[in-house]
Computed example of a mutant assay.
Amino acid sequence: MIYDGPAPADSDAPRTGGVPLAPAGFVWPVCGCGGPLRFFAHLPVGDDVLSVFLCQNDPGVCEFWDARSSANRVHLFPREGLRPVAVPESGLALLPVTSAIRVHGVAFDPDEADEEEGEPDAYDIARQGWRREPGERFGKQREVLGSLGGSPSYLEDDRLPACPSCAGAMEFAAHLEEGLTRETAMNLGGQLGYVFVCRACREGAFLTD
């Protein structure tokens, strides 16, 4: 997923920031600290939309990195019939800037990847491929905002979340990077975010590495 400039706040296209789109009756999620969660990403996946929220009211205090914490929330909505949600009047509920995302397929030979210990990781290889295609420039890799599908990069098996409803293994859905600039970015403590979903129960989970 590549940064693609500013976007309308209520766009139904892939984006970070802006206003969440949700079904009628949706209630803005609140963290255990009492403040609203900040809306992070709107990610259409087929006939559904992943809507990701994290607490940023006092970064580093609330455990937004823990899949079982009240400091994050992932919703899986049917895409049809969604509407912009009323934004809380107080708290850090929105990012300052809405960023469009475009999905870009990277063709890159793993043998050309930077040398690292262990087996090359598919997500790292893709990020390196984007940096070098169509031409390398300083900071280009920062334009990568994550990826859809595939497998979670370098995440240990014992950290894979179970669905809170059926206790089954959840499906990996997306990587999410912090963002390109201070205005467009979510504070993830410098870590990579992972989004998981149980489609049968329509449950989601978020954690960082």
Rank of each mutant, 00 (worst) to 15 (best):
V19E: 03
S69M: 08
T16M: 04
M186F: 09
N187F: 11
P6H: 04
V45R: 11
V27N: 15
F196I: 08
R131V: 03
N57D: 13
E89L: 11
F196Y: 12
G32I: 09
V97P: 01
Y123T: 02
M1H: 02
E136Y: 11
P59C: 04
F26D: 11
A86Q: 13
G105D: 09
P78G: 12
C163K: 09
Y154F: 14
T208H: 04
L188V: 02
R38I: 04
E117P: 08
R132S: 05
L188G: 01
S147F: 00
G135I: 11
E156H: 14
V87N: 06
Y3S: 10
A86P: 09
R159C: 14
L50W: 06
G118S: 10
V61N: 09
Q128D: 02
R199Q: 12
W28P: 08
A162P: 08
S165R: 15
V30S: 13
G168D: 14
E171N: 13
G139V: 04
G35T: 12
Q56D: 09
G139L: 05
A122K: 11
P161G: 08
Q56L: 06
F138R: 14
E115D: 12
T184P: 01
H42I: 05
A7L: 01
P110G: 06
G189N: 03
P36I: 07
P44G: 06
V103L: 07
A107V: 11
G150V: 05
A67Q: 06
L160M: 14
W65R: 06
D4T: 03
P23N: 14
D157F: 15
A24L: 15
L54I: 10
R83M: 13
R202Y: 10
P59Y: 03
G193A: 02
P120C: 08
A169L: 15
D114K: 10
L37M: 08
A93M: 05
